[in-house]
């Protein structure tokens, strides 16, 4: 095999006799200057989906709380500061993902106008049903989002390990690790909102199962859609 390869290269070598033309080989020359190898297409596709769906999700969360706040600041002024606190955190999440989307050149979800209307409507609607219904809505949404962030985190950590194995010196950049850290921090925020909802009588909403299961189903459908489109 090896000697074959050597013979092959001797045949392919350009001849330099007299005035004959010299022909070169068209074999590709590898560029070895780059320190970090490119990410695999699978990883890049996964990260694009991750940023797209999380951006859409945080846009939704931002607008749900803004809808609830718009109602509660008139009907239940004592509840408004609590909603405002959660809203502020969601605004921060939303802004962070908008920035990530722009720097990493991910296309936003095509349905963002729809998410706008649906999320604000959900916020206003549940708030009009009362405090318990609004809290049940938060509970349903944050349950789905918390689980969703956990799934993403698990897959992301696997990808980081895989990329490190593929790199020659086992080095990866901080880029992906920072993203993982950010997501785990956001997941903690979302789970905190879940606890707040439970503390504020989310489970007393009637009809509890119908309300939470419908919202959870809607969230899952939205996650599926926003990942892809």
């Amino acid at each position: 095999m090896n000697s074959n390869a050597i013979r092959q290269s001797q045949i392919m070598r350009p001849c330099s006799r007299g005035l004959q033309l010299r022909y070169k080989s068209t074999k590709p020359v590898l560029d070895k200057k780059r320190a970090l190898p490119p990410l695999s297409p699978r990883t890049r596709d996964f990260l694009a989906r991750l940023i797209r769906v999380d951006q859409a999700g945080e846009l939704g969360a931002d607008l749900i709380y803004s809808g609830q706040h718009a109602v509660f600041k008139r009907t239940k002024p004592d509840l408004a500061p609590l909603i405002a606190h959660m809203w502020e955190q969601e605004v921060h999440h939303h802004k962070t993902f908008n920035e990530l989307q722009a720097t990493h050149r991910v296309r936003p979800s095509v349905f963002s106008p729809l998410w706008n209307v649906a999320a604000y409507g959900l916020g206003v609607g549940t708030a009009l049903l009362g405090k318990e219904a609004a809290m049940a809505c938060t509970l349903a949404v944050e349950t789905v989002i918390g689980g969703h962030y956990n799934n993403q985190l698990r897959e992301l950590l696997e990808m980081i390990e895989l990329e490190a194995k593929q790199a020659e010196d086992g080095q990866t950049s901080d880029e992906l690790r920072k993203l993982a850290k950010l997501i785990s921090q956001f997941r903690d925020d979302e789970l905190e909102h879940l606890d707040t909802a439970v503390e504020n009588d989310a489970e007393k909403a009637r009809p509890y199962m119908l309300l939470t299961e419908t919202i959870k189903g809607g969230c899952r459908a939205a996650v599926w859609t926003a990942e892809r489109f």
């Binding site: 970090l36 490119p38 890049r44 940023i51 720097t103 296309r107």
Partner: peptide, 18 residues
């Protein structure tokens, strides 16, 4: 499918020097 654009892991050129 718009892929994620990494700032540190740069994608290679699709063309060889030749």
């Amino acid at each position: 499918p718009r892929l994620y654009h990494s700032l540190t892991h740069l994608p290679p050129s699709p063309y060889t020097a030749t």
